[in-house]
Design a binder for these strands. Structure first.
Lengths: 201, 201
DNA sequence: TTTTCTATTGAACACTGTTTAATAGATTTG
DNA sequence: CAAATCTATTAAACAGTGTTCAATAGAAAA
């Protein structure tokens, strides 16, 4: 029994070793520039063996994809201590922006890389959770009288689009050239302009 | 003399033939799934010869990238007939959205594919032109009393972010799963929610 | 006619993701 | 203990990729 357990432990450890190596290279070089051979050689391993632990390159990617969302969701949930839902709503956008700044590579992996696997339920459930969390906060705002006359879903979509748009431009470095200020400042100013707008609603 | 001119004409034609083939495959399959060999075989040509006309794969991509922006800009400029700048502003967002719907592949190529070449002036001048066009329209709105107290640049950035966010979610198919309506409808509803918000400003 | 130039080719190089037969080592079974 | 089985690993192979380059055929210029 304990022999089998040790075996299993070793297997879990190898799984983790591969994932650690993959995370390092994926986040550093992005999806296309990461090769199975690179992941393997980083841990003095043979490329073929990786397929003993993962179905293919995409499965490794998806593991990290989920990892990123777990990290992201935890930062969203950390705002639950804020009592006022509208304050929480505003803070959520900032969490989004800060996440894109501090974990640009994760953000790319999570939102901007197109993998071959489409939006299949399994892997994207956690992404949907994030959206539903945002939707819930907006609902709480509406219950308290905010955003009257605006459809909850569309408002959710709009908020998400705005923040994601800001972060996309940032992550693809499409911001710095067009305005003089630093990209980080611009993100905040763009978001504040949005908040100033929604404030009057 | 006329011999040299004929030669040059043939060279231009070959250049165009390659680009036509590349456009077809790039827009159909995206950047990574398009190979030089595919582009060549489509026109019964040898892969190596492509490098006589283009420096590398990225140069072909950039040619199409610029092509997309020219098409995009022309659709923006078509709105110049609209007298009222605020009406023009609202229509600009719709042009963006419609462009993403009708030319999803161009949109991906132009805004979502990360090429190795960064934001070097040359290729991105035309992208900047689009932003400055938007900024100009917003300025005209402000001159007529709209958007008072809001910084022109930040408002430009925010508008761009919102519309680009909507289009990004659409192009990456991150929309359909989370809400029940069709993605095309959602884009419009999201944008209309934004307009309803800005209307009060 | 010979030389020079121009456009083209196929082969080669160093990569890529993935599959698979062979294998060595440990574990289980007879 | 020996034989059979299972488990994890490997190197080699396959089909694909972007790119380079020596060789070459054909036209133009000398």
């Amino acid at each position: 029994m304990s022999i089998a357990k040790r075996k299993e432990q070793e297997k879990i450890e190898m799984h983790k070793r591969i994932l650690d190596s993959a995370r390092k290279i994926f986040l550093e070089k992005g999806y296309e520039q990461t090769s199975i051979r690179n992941i393997a050689s980083e841990i003095n391993y043979s490329p073929g063996s990786i397929y003993f632990y993962f179905k293919d390159k995409n499965e490794i990617f998806h593991e990290l994809h989920k990892e990123g969302f777990r990290l992201f969701l935890s930062q969203m949930k950390a705002l639950d201590i804020i009592e006022d839902p509208y304050e929480r709503y505003k803070a959520l956008g900032l969490v989004f922006i800060r996440f894109a700044q501090n974990h640009t590579d994760y953000y790319n992996l999570m939102f901007l890389v197109s993998e071959t696997g489409k939006s299949e339920g399994e892997g994207f459930q956690i992404a949907q959770d994030s959206i539903e969390h945002l939707s819930g906060v907006i609902k709480q705002c509406q219950d308290k009288g905010r955003f009257q006359g605006l459809n909850n879903k569309y408002l959710t979509l709009m908020t998400l689009s705005l923040v994601h748009g800001i972060c996309s431009l940032y992550c693809k470095d499409r911001m710095s050239g067009f305005f003089e200020k630093s990209s980080e400042e611009l993100m905040l100013h763009g978001y504040e302009t949005f908040i100033a707008l929604i404030e009057k609603s």
